[in-house]
Design a protein around this nucleic acid. Structure first.
Lengths: 344, 344
DNA sequence: TTGTACGCGTTATCAG
DNA sequence: CTGATAACGCGTACAA
């Protein structure tokens, strides 16, 4: 067995409570005994047992993360591990531990949350995505359990969350294309039940309207899975039935599928922009213009909101908006803007 | 406060120990009281407090993972998150919880390990990489703390580990190139202090020798960082000073740099093979031939070794070898094999 | 079959 | 400034 507070107390010839005091050096203790206790701790290589401490203080200094299990999204995209790293940076700063789980669906996510809450093992939860009418968010709210969401939830005024300004980011990207004289811009989005998709779609629509263009519903497509293949199919069909002169995609992965569709359609590439600034997008040919969303920062800030709240250090807001940055590469080069794919 | 075992006991009119017994349903209890206690647990929505249980049983059912913090490697490569998922699958099967940390260097890794051990918060550790004379492995051995390594350690006979047969995988790949009549095959590896690099290098060397070719030390290059850029530089220099007719790389990322170097050298592409079967390699042009190493399976088996050991269910071996699979794509197509880059 | 009493290692309250 | 003592919630010998 490891050495306990009692062993130290015995060696230093004081009571366990005194040892506990030097451990927290809050109460005023005489320097001599403090010295003696420190000596004892050192010579016994004593380290407090975190479990026992947790039981006594009824706090675990542990946060739980719930990751989606969608292989396509998870493995093509360094978003999650980057966000996890951002979380870990702030957590370390405040001595918090991190646990993780992969969930296969919303049902299993709820189960994980129930366990998290009942076990008393974690003090707060970080969710990596936000859906329309999200069951996890609703559940956590109902249980009044501390949590943060990465992604703008449906009710942004309650609870903690971090996000990019997805509306603005997509607005800007769309505006950029419009200013290059594109007028039939297709929207290519991911799952429609995700808030991120809807927020970006809103930005797209607003940009179209603000610039006096006609909003063409048939140019809006979303996928049911997070899949390059489905993007390929959707864009192939779109190009066959519509006039299109640019594509705004909500994710690089989807953009990759769209690019292949354009190449297969008739060798002609239209301007296209993705999101997430993936490594693959940087290095493929043509290099993909994309919006960097700063996942590490998103994770960091999400963690900050949660921990600060648990520690009683409240932030002025219940959310953080993380900057995005449009990174221009080959797929928005000038020569592409003259082209236009028309129904034949 | 959450409901405790006492509340249940009171409601069911039994003693706390009886409640504890139905919780573990080991001791023989009368069905009537068992029923009554279950009713009480249900109506109070009772869930045992995991912290208290851990303290009493002095086990936490928690494992700690230590991830490297190298952005280049971490974010370009879904290896880590795939392995983490594999780990989580087995952990869930046995009710184990998982914690994670990102370390910036070997020193910080040791610190994390010390905390893990002293805190008594985790029962075992999973390391994601193995170095030559690995300080973490040595430390864990010295402390006799349970752990598994993903990667073949320097002393494979002691401790738990999982790995691909890196020697054999690289041997096969090299042999494949030799059989296509390549005789000046360059080896492009990552950090030389990593066991994975050395194991693959051994396979390369053995294949060269076994086929009666001359081992040219100057065709062996390794990078000091895990970086596409450095691979680009190394291969550029290599091509300038040597005759080369194929490249065997230990990682897709490095292969990407090498491909760019070849393209810049004089538009000529040599056959090249990478490892890890990255998504980018599948979709780039030319699509990269690569060795799939099954990271999810590696994580799963690593976790299995550790948990089985902790639970007293010993495996016949102290390690698992996970299958690899060579996946052939554009960069090993026949037409490439006639070419040869010669010093001018 | 069930209850009592104590321990797990720490913190917190209350005396002194 | 320091030391008993009682929690924290659960598991488990030992009794009954």
């Amino acid at each position: 067995m490891a050495t306990t507070i009692k062993d130290v107390a015995k060696l230093a010839q004081v009571s366990p409570s005194t040892v506990s005091r030097v451990l927290h050096d809050n109460s005023r203790i005489s320097n001599t005994t403090k010295e003696r206790v420190m000596q004892a701790m050192h010579s016994l290589n004593y380290h407090p047992n975190a479990i026992a401490r947790s039981l006594a203080k009824s706090n675990t200094k542990t946060l739980g993360l719930i990751l989606p299990n969608d292989e396509l999204e998870l493995f093509q995209n360094s978003f999650f591990i980057q966000a996890m790293r951002g979380i870990s940076i702030y957590a370390k700063l405040h001595g918090y531990k991190l646990m993780y789980n992969f969930s296969i669906d919303e049902q299993e996510e709820i189960e994980y949350l129930e366990n998290y809450i009942h076990d008393n093992w974690v003090e707060g939860v970080i969710l990596f995505t936000s859906r329309q009418d999200d069951k996890c968010i609703n559940y956590l709210h109902k249980r009044a359990f501390p949590f943060t969401v990465i992604g703008r939830p449906s009710s942004p005024e309650t609870g903690f969350w971090v996000d990019n300004d997805n509306f603005q980011a997509m607005y800007s990207v769309t505006e950029y294309l419009i200013e290059k004289n594109c007028s039939s811009i297709a929207f290519l989005g991911g799952l429609r039940e995700l808030d991120v998709t809807l927020n970006r779609l809103s930005g797209y629509k607003q940009a179209i309207k603000s610039h006096g263009l006609e909003l063409q519903e048939n140019l809006i497509c979303t996928t049911t899975r997070f899949s390059e293949e489905e993007a390929y199919e959707q864009i192939s069909e779109l190009l066959n039935n519509n006039t299109v002169d640019a594509i705004a995609a909500t994710d690089d992965i989807l953009a990759f599928g769209a690019i292949r569709a354009m190449q297969d359609f008739n060798q002609t590439l239209l301007p296209i922009i993705g999101f997430n600034n993936t490594v693959r997008g940087q290095y493929q040919t043509p290099a993909l213009s994309s919006v960097e969303i700063n996942p590490t920062e998103l994770g960091y800030k999400a963690c900050k909101l949660l921990i600060d709240s648990l520690e009683g250090l409240d932030n002025p807001y219940n959310h953080f908006i993380v900057e995005t940055k449009f990174i221009e590469r080959d797929t928005t080069q000038p020569q592409l803007f003259s082209k236009r794919l028309v129904q034949v």
